[in-house]
């Protein structure tokens, strides 16, 4: 079963996302990272097992845009679907994220409902078992 990597500097936000995933019935193991740099370290040891990355934009050290841009350049991890989960929901920011990582699989603007998160990640996880 593929792992889900949740990247957000807010511990509460990570907990909320994980709760939604688990309440939706997904039993995938979940990995957590507090910023882009930690997420890269996590991917370095788990890249073959990670089926989706849910990533915030505004984070210290390495932000979400820098992170998705960095992994897009590494063939081993470039194909992992990434979903941005962020307050940066304007059209120009979405375009910026898509330009940084052509494999961007989804974009969720905060605040979001559990249904939005579920409907975004379900097809990705189902096609990426």
């Amino acid at each position: 079963m593929k792992k889900i990597l949740v990247v957000d500097d807010s511990g509460v936000q990570r907990k909320m996302i994980i709760q939604i995933i688990q309440k939706a019935g997904f039993q995938n193991p979940i990995l957590e990272a507090g910023d882009g740099a930690q997420a890269i370290q996590t991917l370095a040891t788990n890249f073959q097992d990670v089926g989706i990355v849910l990533c915030d934009w505004n984070m210290p050290n390495m932000n979400g845009l820098e992170f998705i841009s960095a992994i897009a350049k590494v063939p081993a991890v470039a194909c992992i679907p990434v979903v941005m989960v962020t307050t940066e929901g304007t059209a120009d920011k979405i375009a910026e994220a898509k330009a940084a990582n052509p494999n961007l699989a989804g974009y969720i603007a905060k605040p979001f409902t559990p249904e939005v998160l579920q409907s975004t990640i379900t097809p990705i996880l189902q096609s990426n078992i």
Binding site: S10, G11, V12, Q13, N58, T86, T87, E88, G89, T90, A109, K110, P111
Partner: peptide
Amino acid sequence: IDGIAEMINVIAGGVKM
């Protein structure tokens, strides 16, 4: 503390949009 910070972050994002 984290939850209240996240709340204002989300509110600011909503106004920005």
